[in-house]
Amino acid sequence: MNSTNETDETNETDGTKAAGAPDETGGPDPSSEPVVAVVGGGRFGWGLADTAARNGRRVVLWSRRPQRPATDQIRVTQELGDLAEAELIFIAVPSPYVGALASQLGEHLDGQHLLVHVSRGMVGAELRPLTAVLRQVTPCRRIGALGGPLVAKALSEGEPGGGVVGTLFPEVREAVREALGGSSLRIYSTDDVAGVEVAMTLVGLLSVATGYARGMGVGPATLAVMATRGMAEAARLGVLLGGKAETFSGLAGFGDLLAAFAGDGRPEVAFGEALALGESPEVAAKRVGANIEGFAVARSFADLIERVGVQAPMTHLLADVLEGKMGGQAMMAALMARSVGAE
């Protein structure tokens, strides 16, 4: 049995416990629970804030330039110090900004705060996971990463779905379930933090690839091979970086990629499509209105693959394609020309 609770049916009672409307179950009044904090006023940050508010929780959302007005339950602030009153803090800013922002935020926090990031990125050439960054720049230790097929729009609208939180700490798992879990969102958990973070990142990259392939007009069979082989590569890279292979067949891996295929409207796919149609990465990013993390990590992964000699040809070639050094057709030809063996 792996340590991922996703497949463990008995554990799902935890998920449903957090699910019931609080007043009916006679549980604690959620409005008396500690405030939930969100760092980042992008669509995803607001999606998390909306979900917690729908669960009856008070929310404080930090944004440098607030785009949306506060609501009864969601207070908007530009002071990071205001987040200290929360217990659970979601970090929903693009990975390149996490370090500096968390470092400032960390000055207001202590060992009781629980930090959970939702970023699809890893940092630097050495591909540092963001949980490691958070541990380094803040005094917080009870940290986690929330992944899976979560998209901003569905979160804000309360569409049924699920995610997985990777953490070593039971209280982080419980706090995320209490804040977000409910009748419309199932929050599973695993202690394979590294696996979740690599899966989140590489699914981001594969989502871009999916969009790119769609933009090229490839058929369903090609897409299926791409997705399956791509995920096998992701799992290999995940294991290399300290994760467990089975995490990649769960919500953080395949689950997340399936949502991209099913057309969940995520910006990575739109970005990939735009690239295939000849737009520059800058223009494409502007158009989809999001920071595309998958694009930024492609080169670091390609370097890692070369350095270690792990089998991940698709991920390796994707870096060239996304940087415009290689065409989609050439990549396809290169992949198809490889010798084929046991799956």
Binding site: P34, E87, S103, G106, E107, D110, G111, Q112, Q136, V137, T138, P139, R141, R142, P170, E171
Partner: peptide, 23 residues
């Protein structure tokens, strides 16, 4: 000491909502 050099009470790591516990 925290990363910014401030001192921090290590008891906060074994506490939740102000109450220390065994876990």
């Amino acid at each position: 000491l925290t990363p910014s050099g401030a001192s921090i009470d290590p008891a906060t790591y074994v506490s939740r909502r102000g109450v220390a516990s065994l876990d």
